[in-house]
């Protein structure tokens, strides 16, 4: 089934601005509810970018926590990547674990982050479904702790095998207490 963009955001020029505004609002709301922290969403931008530049930009050979999922439906086919540095991920897990009075093990921490990703990516999927007027689904997020270069190339290389440039949407989220800092990256294939 083909998706068509909702008429309120049909002007191509404003498509991404509208999308980002909505995404920012929804994600902020979800994170505020989950963590109780004062969340600030910074929209870094959306643009097409050369594959090699994506790898260069996100690869510092440092360990990172990645929460990743595929989104698809109609013409939408992309990858969502939430990147957190390890200390931020620990802080986030501690914040969320406090709510359920749990002293987390490594496995618990991954489960908590997977659930966190599920909520954030679920919100993104729901917004895209409304904007594009079709059912947009997503896979259960995966949580991996590994070197950023390897994580990013895992997402980017499959796209690179068919396309030279990709559409990159990026936003960063932080709390005023500096406790929570993460980046959300959506990779879409440019047509």
């Amino acid at each position: 089934m083909k998706c068509s963009l909702d008429s309120t955001a049909s002007n191509e020029k404003y498509k991404h601005i509208a999308l980002y505004k909505l995404l920012g609002e929804k994600i902020t709301e979800a994170l505020r509810t989950l963590t109780g922290a004062d969340i600030v969403v910074q929209i870094s931008g959306t643009r097409t970018i050369d594959i090699a530049k994506v790898i260069e930009k996100y690869s510092r050979d440092e360990p990172i926590v990645a929460i990743a999922s595929s989104i698809y439906g109609g013409d939408i086919n992309g990858q969502i990547l939430l990147l957190l540095n390890i200390s931020v991920a620990r802080d986030l897990v501690n914040m969320l674990a406090r709510e359920i009075e749990l002293k987390p093990s490594d496995e618990d921490a991954r489960d908590i982050l997977r659930e966190f990703g599920n909520i954030v990516i679920g919100n993104i999927s729901s917004i895209l479904s409304k904007m594009y007027r079709c059912r947009v689904e997503y896979d259960i997020p995966e949580v991996v702790v590994d070197l950023d270069t390897a994580v990013v190339d895992s997402i980017v290389l499959p796209i690179a095998s068919e396309h030279d440039v990709i559409e990159l949407h990026e936003m960063s989220i932080s709390s005023t207490s500096e406790l929570l800092k993460l980046r959300i990256i959506l990779f879409g294939v440019s047509i």
């Binding site: 995966e142 895992s154 499959p158």
Partner: peptide, 13 residues
């Protein structure tokens, strides 16, 4: 030739 993220098609790459 690893597949760091199984949910992507990186496995085949």
């Amino acid at each position: 030739g690893a597949s760091i993220l199984k949910s992507t098609v990186s496995m085949s790459i």
